[in-house]
C-alpha cells in the first residue's frame, strides 16, 4: 500500500523525551509528520491500557519514550515502563498484532537527533507493517 501514512501516538516524559523532541525542533531536524505526542510527567505514568486503547482506536503505532536508565527525574519510572511495554508486546504477539507497532525508547533531553531518527525509523517500519488490523473494526 504505497499511500499508507501511519498514525503514531508518542507518550513522552516531560523531563527527558519531551525535551529531546523539543531539541529536535530547536535544531530544526526533520522527521515525518505522522507522530502526535502526549506529554506525561514520567514514562512510569504510561499504562499498557493506553497502548491497547490506542490500537483499538485504530492508531497504527505507539511510541513510548522515557529517560535513560539512571536519568529518570523520578528515579525509576522508566524501568517499570520498560517492563510494562515488554509484557504488553508479548501479549500483542499472542493476539496476532505485530508487536513492532509498539516501541519503547530511552531518549534524553540532549538527544534531539535520536528522537528524530526514532520517529523516522518507526514510521518506516509501520509502513512496512501496513495499517493497524484493528482499524477496519473502527470504521
Amino acid at each position: 500500500m504505497p499511500d499508507f501514512e501511519p498514525s503514531v501516538v508518542a507518550f513522552l516524559c516531560n523531563w527527558c523525551s519531551y525535551a529531546g523532541a523539543d531539541l529536535a525542533g530547536t535544531s530544526r531536524l526533520k522527521y515525518p509528520p505522522n507522530v502526535r505526542s502526549i506529554r506525561v510527567m514520567c514514562s512510569g505514568r504510561v499504562d499498557p491500557v493506553f497502548v491497547l486503547d490506542a490500537l483499538k482506536e485504530g492508531i497504527d503505532g505507539i511510541l513510548v519514550a522515557g529517560c535513560h536508565p539512571g536519568d529518570c527525574h523520578y528515579q525509576s519510572g522508566n524501568y517499570k515502563t520498560n517492563r510494562k511495554i515488554k509484557l504488553i508486546k508479548k501479549l500483542l504477539d499472542e493476539l496476532g498484532i505485530e508487536s513492532d507497532r509498539v516501541r519503547f525508547e530511552y531518549i534524553s533531553a540532549s538527544e534531539g537527533q535520536k528522537f528524530a531518527d526514532t520517529v523516522t525509523e518507526f514510521v518506516f517500519r509501520l509502513k512496512e507493517l501496513g495499517p493497524n488490523p484493528l482499524k477496519e473494526e473502527c470504521q
Binding site: 499498557p48 497502548v51 486503547d53 539512571g70 517499570k80
Partner: peptide
C-alpha cells in the same frame, strides 16, 4: 474504574516484577 482487566494486571505485574535492584 478499569478499562481493561488484563491490561491493568499487566501494568501492575510488570511494575512489581524485578522491582528490587531494578537498575
Amino acid at each position: 474504574n478499569s478499562l481493561d482487566q488484563g491490561g491493568k494486571m499487566i501494568s501492575a505485574l510488570a511494575s512489581i516484577l524485578g522491582l528490587d535492584d531494578e537498575e
